[in-house]
Design a binder for these strands. Structure first.
Lengths: 204, 204
DNA sequence: ATCCTTCCCTAACAAGTGTTTGGTAGGTTA
DNA sequence: TAACCTACCAAACACTTGTTAGGGAAGGAT
């Protein structure tokens, strides 16, 4: 007998799981995790509440799977950028662009992450959220420091304030972004970068 | 008999109400509104759950009072700024500074607003959230447009994107800001404005 | 034809939810 | 002293929550 941690849905089809996770993510993002009842998800998916437990062993598991799938993909992209050996400014540009692509692909997951990660991080099951956030900070803050040292970024700013500024400006976009809404992720990234790097004021 | 809408706590003392609302706001901000039980609030305040209903007639009422008190104070400050007849750039600067002062004073309420306003706005009781948001957009977007027309702000940016950029950069600060943490609201506003207006890149 | 697997339903469970009701200790007023 | 008000407690209420157990329909494999 293999030491399989998953006790249920050993035979469930992966495609159905993804479908259900997608609708669950939408409801979580729209209503908030705690405000979302498992019956509401089932309604939206066209089955009954109990039937969800054929595919998943708890509501929390669904959330877990949504968030970790998103973070896995995110880091796949980020690691690629960080390994490319670009200069600080180009790294920031690539990270921002990659971030908007992730928002485009995982809009719901990003919104959930934004709202819930803070109080989830204390749970042992979701410790990876904290780890991811630390890795995230290391990558961004390090790049900014590198840029300051290299003369690419301003030296008169509090670097941690700058980090939070850049980080937040990018990710809150998930709260209003809707795929297929005129702007492509790359176009939004371009304009955001233009504002963050050069400011919105006219240069005098 | 005066047409008093409030059926309960007609005789409750306003100071005690404010105390209880303050602790409720803290818990709401930390755990999320729906995830917060009325027993948890009572625990934190040092009384029993049922006793809260001497002061308030529902959990929702507490939330309502927290948010509307915040918005009232916010608009008091904003209206002062908007009535001052400043130029577009100075208006933006004053609005941002005022916003950070409100974050300093109503940190918990701002955090709650950020997390919950979206799904609350559909409830009739919280319609004022939508109205406030529209008024907010009008003030900020109008000022930005005025600034573009006056040559103070760049003309090559999508104005709505710029609006969301500025708006979000300011208000998400409530998620990490802690009063008495080294930076005063005015100092944070100064640096934020410097980044938003002039960018973080070195001018070449 | 039989069995087995997949996927769902019906029906219930225990725990936790916001809220109400009746009561009461202690101070204030008459 | 008596009446009253304020602010709370104790105990329960009806309801919703996540979750489980048992069963069954459909279809492929044997």
């Amino acid at each position: 007998m293999p030491t399989n941690k998953k006790k249920t849905q050993v035979t469930a089809s992966p495609e159905r799981r993804r479908e259900l996770l997608a609708t669950a993510a939408e409801v979580f993002a729209a209503q908030g995790y705690n405000a979302t009842t498992v019956r509401r998800i089932a309604d939206e998916a066209g089955l009954l509440a109990g039937s969800l437990y054929y595919h998943f062993d708890s509501k929390e598991s669904m959330l877990d799977e949504i968030l970790s799938a998103f973070l896995d993909e995110l880091w796949e992209g980020y690691d690629g950028v960080l390994a490319a050996g670009l200069g600080p400014r180009e790294t920031i540009e690539a990270l921002v662009t990659e971030s908007f692509r992730e928002i485009d692909r995982h809009r719901a997951a990003v919104a959930i992450y934004q709202k819930e990660s803070r109080h989830l991080a204390v749970l042992p099951r979701f410790r990876y959220l904290t780890e991811s956030q630390q890795k995230f900070e290391k990558a961004w803050l390090g790049t900014l420091e590198r840029g300051v040292a290299a003369g690419a970024f301003r030296t008169d700013l509090d670097i941690r304030l700058t980090y939070r500024f850049v980080r937040d400006t990018v990710w809150v976009a998930a709260s209003w972004y809707r795929p297929g809404g005129g702007h492509s992720p790359e176009e939004i990234a371009r304009q955001y970068l233009s504002m963050v790097l050069d400011g919105i004021a006219v240069r005098t």
